[in-house]
Protein backbone atom coordinates (compact mmCIF):
# COMPACT_ATOMS: atom_id res chain seq x y z
CA UNK A 1 0.00 0.00 0.00
CA UNK A 2 1.27 3.46 -0.89
CA UNK A 3 1.58 5.82 2.05
CA UNK A 4 1.62 9.57 1.74
CA UNK A 5 3.62 11.46 4.35
CA UNK A 6 1.49 13.80 6.40
CA UNK A 7 -1.75 12.27 5.13
CA UNK A 8 -3.93 10.52 7.74
CA UNK A 9 -4.10 6.76 7.31
CA UNK A 10 -7.87 6.55 6.48
CA UNK A 11 -7.38 9.07 3.68
CA UNK A 12 -4.37 7.17 2.35
CA UNK A 13 -6.49 4.02 2.34
CA UNK A 14 -9.22 5.76 0.34
CA UNK A 15 -6.66 7.11 -2.15
CA UNK A 16 -5.27 3.61 -2.62
CA UNK A 17 -8.72 2.10 -3.11
CA UNK A 18 -9.76 4.79 -5.59
CA UNK A 19 -6.58 4.40 -7.61
CA UNK A 20 -7.53 0.76 -8.23
CA UNK A 21 -10.50 1.93 -10.34
CA UNK A 22 -10.08 1.85 -14.14
CA UNK A 23 -8.83 5.12 -15.59
CA UNK A 24 -8.01 6.58 -12.16
CA UNK A 25 -4.34 7.30 -11.58
CA UNK A 26 -2.78 8.29 -8.23
CA UNK A 27 -3.28 12.03 -8.90
CA UNK A 28 -6.96 11.64 -9.79
CA UNK A 29 -7.44 9.36 -6.77
CA UNK A 30 -5.91 12.02 -4.56
CA UNK A 31 -8.17 14.74 -6.04
CA UNK A 32 -11.29 12.59 -5.59
CA UNK A 33 -10.37 11.68 -2.02
CA UNK A 34 -9.78 15.31 -1.05
CA UNK A 35 -13.06 16.26 -2.73
CA UNK A 36 -14.88 13.64 -0.65
CA UNK A 37 -13.12 14.90 2.46
CA UNK A 38 -14.44 18.39 1.81
CA UNK A 39 -17.97 17.16 0.93
CA UNK A 40 -20.81 17.12 3.43
CA UNK A 41 -21.47 14.00 5.41
CA UNK A 42 -24.78 13.65 3.57
CA UNK A 43 -23.05 13.51 0.18
CA UNK A 44 -20.47 10.93 1.26
CA UNK A 45 -23.10 8.80 2.97
CA UNK A 46 -25.23 8.81 -0.18
CA UNK A 47 -22.22 7.62 -2.16
CA UNK A 48 -21.43 4.85 0.34
CA UNK A 49 -25.07 3.69 0.35
CA UNK A 50 -25.24 3.77 -3.46
CA UNK A 51 -22.10 1.62 -3.74
CA UNK A 52 -23.38 -0.81 -1.09
CA UNK A 53 -26.84 -1.08 -2.66
CA UNK A 54 -25.31 -1.61 -6.08
CA UNK A 55 -23.21 -4.49 -4.77
CA UNK A 56 -26.11 -6.02 -2.81
CA UNK A 57 -28.90 -5.58 -5.31
CA UNK A 58 -27.40 -5.71 -8.79
CA UNK A 59 -26.67 -9.14 -10.17
CA UNK A 60 -26.75 -10.92 -13.50
CA UNK A 61 -30.03 -11.96 -15.09
CA UNK A 62 -30.23 -15.75 -15.02
CA UNK A 63 -31.49 -15.81 -18.63
CA UNK A 64 -29.53 -13.20 -20.59
CA UNK A 65 -26.71 -12.34 -18.10
CA UNK A 66 -27.37 -8.62 -18.41
CA UNK A 67 -27.04 -6.65 -15.18
CA UNK A 68 -30.29 -6.36 -13.25
CA UNK A 69 -31.83 -5.77 -9.83
CA UNK A 70 -34.69 -8.18 -10.63
CA UNK A 71 -34.37 -11.69 -11.97
CA UNK A 72 -35.28 -12.17 -14.80
CA UNK A 73 -34.34 -8.70 -16.00
CA UNK A 74 -36.74 -6.15 -17.42
CA UNK A 75 -35.68 -6.95 -20.99
CA UNK A 76 -36.30 -10.68 -20.56
CA UNK A 77 -39.68 -10.04 -18.94
CA UNK A 78 -40.88 -7.62 -21.62
CA UNK A 79 -43.50 -9.57 -23.59
CA UNK A 80 -43.54 -6.95 -26.33
CA UNK A 81 -40.04 -7.97 -27.37
CA UNK A 82 -39.49 -10.52 -30.13
CA UNK A 83 -38.48 -13.79 -28.50
CA UNK A 84 -37.33 -15.34 -31.77
CA UNK A 85 -34.40 -12.93 -32.23
CA UNK A 86 -31.38 -12.98 -29.96
CA UNK A 87 -28.64 -10.36 -30.04
CA UNK A 88 -25.32 -11.63 -28.64
CA UNK A 89 -23.09 -8.94 -27.14
CA UNK A 90 -19.80 -8.92 -25.22
CA UNK A 91 -20.79 -6.92 -22.15
CA UNK A 92 -23.67 -5.24 -20.39
CA UNK A 93 -22.59 -1.79 -21.62
CA UNK A 94 -23.23 -2.95 -25.19
CA UNK A 95 -26.88 -3.69 -24.32
CA UNK A 96 -27.26 -0.16 -22.97
CA UNK A 97 -25.77 1.32 -26.16
CA UNK A 98 -27.94 -0.84 -28.44
CA UNK A 99 -31.06 -0.02 -26.44
CA UNK A 100 -30.30 3.67 -26.88
CA UNK A 101 -30.74 3.29 -30.65
CA UNK A 102 -34.36 2.15 -30.19
CA UNK A 103 -33.93 0.03 -33.35
CA UNK A 104 -33.84 -3.41 -31.81
CA UNK A 105 -36.84 -5.09 -30.20
CA UNK A 106 -35.55 -8.63 -29.70
CA UNK A 107 -33.86 -10.32 -26.75
CA UNK A 108 -30.22 -10.24 -25.66
CA UNK A 109 -27.51 -12.58 -24.50
CA UNK A 110 -24.46 -11.10 -22.78
CA UNK A 111 -21.36 -13.29 -23.13
CA UNK A 112 -19.51 -11.50 -20.31
CA UNK A 113 -16.38 -11.05 -22.42
CA UNK A 114 -14.72 -12.33 -25.58
CA UNK A 115 -12.39 -15.18 -26.38
CA UNK A 116 -8.84 -14.03 -25.84
CA UNK A 117 -6.54 -17.05 -26.16
CA UNK A 118 -3.37 -15.07 -25.39
CA UNK A 119 -4.83 -13.90 -22.08
CA UNK A 120 -6.08 -17.41 -21.33
CA UNK A 121 -9.77 -16.49 -21.72
CA UNK A 122 -11.46 -19.48 -23.28
CA UNK A 123 -15.07 -20.52 -24.02
CA UNK A 124 -15.51 -21.92 -20.52
CA UNK A 125 -14.95 -18.41 -19.11
CA UNK A 126 -17.84 -16.97 -21.13
CA UNK A 127 -21.60 -17.58 -21.18
CA UNK A 128 -21.36 -19.62 -24.39
CA UNK A 129 -22.79 -22.90 -23.06
CA UNK A 130 -25.78 -20.96 -21.67
CA UNK A 131 -26.30 -19.41 -25.12
CA UNK A 132 -26.26 -22.86 -26.65
CA UNK A 133 -28.85 -24.03 -24.13
CA UNK A 134 -31.10 -21.07 -24.94
CA UNK A 135 -30.92 -21.83 -28.64
CA UNK A 136 -31.54 -25.54 -28.05
CA UNK A 137 -34.49 -25.03 -25.75
CA UNK A 138 -36.18 -21.92 -27.12
CA UNK A 139 -37.93 -20.94 -30.31
CA UNK A 140 -35.09 -18.76 -31.52
CA UNK A 141 -34.97 -18.22 -35.27
CA UNK A 142 -32.14 -15.71 -35.56
CA UNK A 143 -29.01 -15.00 -33.58
CA UNK A 144 -27.39 -11.63 -34.27
CA UNK A 145 -23.68 -11.64 -33.42
CA UNK A 146 -22.96 -8.12 -32.16
CA UNK A 147 -19.47 -8.68 -30.78
CA UNK A 148 -16.91 -5.97 -31.58
CA UNK A 149 -15.27 -6.08 -35.01
CA UNK A 150 -11.88 -6.69 -33.34
CA UNK A 151 -9.84 -9.86 -33.82
CA UNK A 152 -11.12 -11.23 -30.50
CA UNK A 153 -14.72 -10.23 -31.29
CA UNK A 154 -14.52 -11.84 -34.73
CA UNK A 155 -12.98 -15.03 -33.33
CA UNK A 156 -15.74 -15.22 -30.72
CA UNK A 157 -18.41 -14.73 -33.39
CA UNK A 158 -16.88 -17.47 -35.57
CA UNK A 159 -16.58 -19.81 -32.58
CA UNK A 160 -20.23 -19.28 -31.58
CA UNK A 161 -21.32 -19.66 -35.20
CA UNK A 162 -19.71 -23.11 -35.31
CA UNK A 163 -21.58 -24.23 -32.22
CA UNK A 164 -24.94 -22.84 -33.31
CA UNK A 165 -24.96 -23.81 -37.01
CA UNK A 166 -25.88 -27.48 -36.36
CA UNK A 167 -29.04 -26.26 -34.58
CA UNK A 168 -30.45 -24.77 -37.77
CA UNK A 169 -30.68 -21.22 -36.46
CA UNK A 170 -30.04 -18.24 -38.75
CA UNK A 171 -26.85 -16.47 -37.67
CA UNK A 172 -26.24 -12.87 -38.73
CA UNK A 173 -23.51 -10.35 -38.02
CA UNK A 174 -23.91 -6.61 -37.52
CA UNK A 175 -23.02 -4.66 -40.68
CA UNK A 176 -19.63 -2.97 -40.82
CA UNK A 177 -18.52 0.10 -42.68
CA UNK A 178 -17.80 3.78 -42.38
CA UNK A 179 -18.93 5.51 -39.20
CA UNK A 180 -20.74 8.86 -39.31
CA UNK A 181 -18.30 11.70 -39.78
CA UNK A 182 -15.53 9.39 -41.00
CA UNK A 183 -12.77 10.55 -43.32
CA UNK A 184 -12.03 8.21 -46.26
CA UNK A 185 -8.40 9.31 -46.28
CA UNK A 186 -7.81 7.84 -42.85
CA UNK A 187 -10.00 4.76 -43.20
CA UNK A 188 -8.24 1.42 -43.03
CA UNK A 189 -8.53 -1.19 -45.75
CA UNK A 190 -10.58 -3.63 -43.64
CA UNK A 191 -13.31 -1.06 -43.00
CA UNK A 192 -13.28 0.12 -46.61
CA UNK A 193 -13.57 -3.46 -47.90
CA UNK A 194 -16.56 -4.06 -45.61
CA UNK A 195 -18.11 -0.74 -46.61
CA UNK A 196 -17.91 -1.76 -50.28
CA UNK A 197 -19.34 -5.21 -49.57
CA UNK A 198 -22.24 -3.78 -47.61
CA UNK A 199 -23.05 -0.86 -49.94
CA UNK A 200 -26.73 -0.13 -50.54
CA UNK A 201 -28.82 1.42 -53.31
CA UNK A 202 -28.87 5.16 -52.84
Amino acid sequence: MNSFSGVPEPLTRLINELSKLPGIGPKSAQRLAFHLLRSSEETTKALVIAVEDMKKQVDLCSICFHITDKDPCQLCQDEERDESVLCVVEQALDVIVLERTGQYRGRYHVLQGVLNPMEGIGPEDLRISELLQRVQSGNIGEVIMATNPSLEGESTAMYVQRLLTPHGVRITRLARGLPSGADLEYTDEITLAHAFEGRQTF
Binding site: P117, G120, G122, R162, L163
Partner: peptide
Protein backbone atom coordinates in the same frame (compact mmCIF):
# COMPACT_ATOMS: atom_id res chain seq x y z
CA UNK B 1 1.46 -20.91 -23.91
CA UNK B 2 -2.08 -19.88 -22.94
CA UNK B 3 -3.34 -19.92 -26.52
CA UNK B 4 -2.24 -23.51 -27.10
CA UNK B 5 -5.36 -24.95 -25.45
CA UNK B 6 -7.61 -22.79 -27.65
CA UNK B 7 -5.78 -23.81 -30.82
CA UNK B 8 -6.11 -27.49 -29.97
CA UNK B 9 -9.74 -27.45 -28.87
CA UNK B 10 -11.60 -25.63 -31.63
CA UNK B 11 -15.04 -26.98 -32.51
CA UNK B 12 -15.15 -28.63 -35.97
CA UNK B 13 -16.15 -26.36 -38.84
CA UNK B 14 -19.84 -26.68 -39.84
Amino acid sequence: PKSQYFLENLPPPP
